[in-house]
Simulated assay, not measured.
Amino acid sequence: MLTVDFDRLGIGPGTRVIDVGCGAGRHSFEAYRRGADIVAFDQDAEELSGVDLMLRAMAEAEEVPAGAAARTVCGDALALPFADGEFDCVIASEILEHIPEDDAAIAELIRVLRPGGTLVVTVPRWLPERVCWALSTEYHSNEGGHVRIYRADELRAKIGGRGVRFAHRHHAHALHAPYWWLKCAVGVRKDDHVLVRAYHRLLVWDMMSGPRTTRLAEKLLDPLVGKSVALYFSKPVVDRVAA
C-alpha cells in the first residue's frame, strides 16, 4: 500500500533515494523495484532487520533491475548520518506526526536533498485524524504515538519556509479512514472485534485484488476523506540567499 506517487517522483535506475522512517519498508521496496539506489532509514533496528531480509530476498529473486542497490541504516531522523545534498529524492511518509522536534527533522530532510531534487512528505490528514483523536485517547496517547495533527496548508508553509518550492498535493487511502474510526470507536487494540475483522478482510482483499469498483471509489473519496495527505517539494538549484 503506497502513499507516495512514484510516477510523479520519477524514480528509476540510478536515482539516489532515502526513505526516512521507512517502517516496514513499503516505499523502500518500490524504489528498489524501480532500480533506485535506496537507503531504508529508521530508528527501529528490529524492524529494519525485517526490511533488510526482504531487500535481500528481492535481489536473490531477481525482482530488481541490474545495478539497483539497497541498504538499511539505523539512526535518528534529527541527525541523519549523510552529507549535504546526498540524495536525489527524500521520502518521509507518516513520520513527522510522531516527532516532537519536527522543525529539526524537516531541516535534516532538506539538508540531505540535492539541489534540483524532490522531497515528499506524507502525514495523516487533519479531518480523519481529528475524528480518531475525538473517538479514542488511546489512539494517540502512547509512547511513540502521534503528537500533533497537521493542517496541510500549515505544514506546506512550514516546509516551504525552509527554501524548497511546493509542487503538488494529493490525498490517499480514503477506504482506510473508516477502518481507523471503527477501531477507535470499539477500542484500538480490539483487532478481534467482528466489525474490525470484517473491514480488515475487505481492505486486504482490495490491496491484493485491486478491483475496479474499490479503486474508483477510493479515487472519488480521496479528496474528501483520504486518510493521508502527500506534499511534494523541489529544492532550487540556486540557493535563494546566495542569489
Rank of each mutant, 00 (worst) to 15 (best):
T3Q: 09
V4W: 00
V17M: 10
D19S: 03
D19P: 02
C22E: 05
H27R: 09
S28I: 02
S28E: 04
F29T: 03
F29H: 01
R34M: 01
Q43R: 14
D44W: 07
D44K: 06
E47S: 12
T72G: 05
C74S: 12
C74H: 02
G75P: 12
A77Y: 02
A83L: 11
G85Q: 09
F87D: 04
F87Y: 09
D88S: 10
S93C: 12
V112M: 06
R114S: 09
P115H: 09
P115M: 11
P124N: 04
R125T: 08
V131I: 15
A134Y: 11
L135P: 08
L135S: 09
S136W: 03
S136F: 03
H140F: 14
G144A: 12
Y150N: 05
R151A: 09
L155I: 10
A157R: 15
V164F: 04
H171V: 00
A172L: 09
H173C: 03
Y179F: 15
W180G: 00
A185N: 05
G187S: 03
D192Y: 04
Y199K: 05
D206I: 01
G210K: 13
R212H: 03
L216Q: 09
A217I: 06
E218M: 06
D222P: 07
V225I: 15
L231G: 11
S234N: 13
A242H: 06
